[in-house]
């Protein structure tokens, strides 16, 4: 096994994936065991609702941190963990939503509809969840090929909006102590701010690039190598 972090072997990457998979599963296992042992406090439904929601948000932020981490560290293979992280964020969101529908509301569709229409924090949380569905559905290689890289990428940029919605959902939920929502909002601001900054750098770089040389004008440049 190649232990070099810069260019790990396929085996090392598989091992990393297994570790990340297990770590992502841990909060859910922890909650399930707590539920089983009746150790989630006086209001266990509230505990699992809150925990699944907060883990969704954390996983979204971790997913969004992959690109900056990759750029700063040069560890480009980190990208290969991103799909799994994003799918775990979706899985926790699905769990969060299912807990709400089933344990919190017991499929009282009237109350659920009222919640979504009437309570801004639920409206925005619901929107975030709905927007996550197409991203999860198109997370496989087949969908990427079918959509084409560019369309796939612009679709998946909606994750920025989803993350903002998720933070707002949390912010509007708390009664008075905005400490934790503020923490997540700050992290998200840094993650999105970096992207904005890179975009700006890229724009400036392109503006400063001299026009193509005279002798290349009107010539076809073949970007795809000949078979």
């Amino acid at each position: 096994m190649n232990l070099s972090l810069r260019s790990p072997s396929a085996g090392t990457i598989v091992a990393f994936k297994a570790i990340v998979f297990a770590l992502c599963l841990l909060p859910a296992v922890n909650l399930a065991l707590g539920w089983q042992a009746n150790a989630l406090g006086a209001n266990p439904i509230e505990t699992i609702t809150r925990a699944s929601g907060e883990w969704t948000l954390r996983l979204l932020l971790i997913t969004l941190a992959v690109t900056p981490l990759r750029r700063f560290s040069g560890l480009h293979w980190l990208l290969r963990l991103r799909r799994m992280l994003g799918l775990f964020a979706f899985a926790y969101a699905l769990g969060h939503f299912a807990i709400y529908l089933w344990l919190d509301q017991f499929f009282d569709w009237n109350a659920i509809a009222l919640d979504i229409l009437d309570r801004p924090f639920i409206t925005v949380g619901f929107a975030a969840f709905v927007l996550l569905i197409p991203l999860a559905a198109t997370s496989n290689s087949f969908a990427i090929r079918r959509l084409g890289g560019r369309r796939w990428q612009s679709l998946h940029r909606s994750v920025y909006a989803i993350a903002i919605f998720a933070v707002v959902h949390f912010w509007w939920l708390v009664k008075a102590d905005i400490g934790r929502p503020l923490l997540y909002a700050s992290i998200l601001a840094v993650l999105l701010g970096l992207r904005g900054w890179w975009r700006e750098l890229e724009r400036r770089r392109q503006l400063s690039v001299p026009p193509p040389a005279k002798h290349l004008e009107k010539k076809v440049i073949r970007l795809v190598p000949r078979q």
């Binding site: 006086a42 209001n43 439904i45 801004p120 009664k175």
Partner: peptide, 12 residues
């Protein structure tokens, strides 16, 4: 705005 007051969960 945050909680429905039509129903409640009795703790337990």
């Amino acid at each position: 705005p945050r909680w429905s007051q039509a129903t409640e969960r009795r703790i337990g």
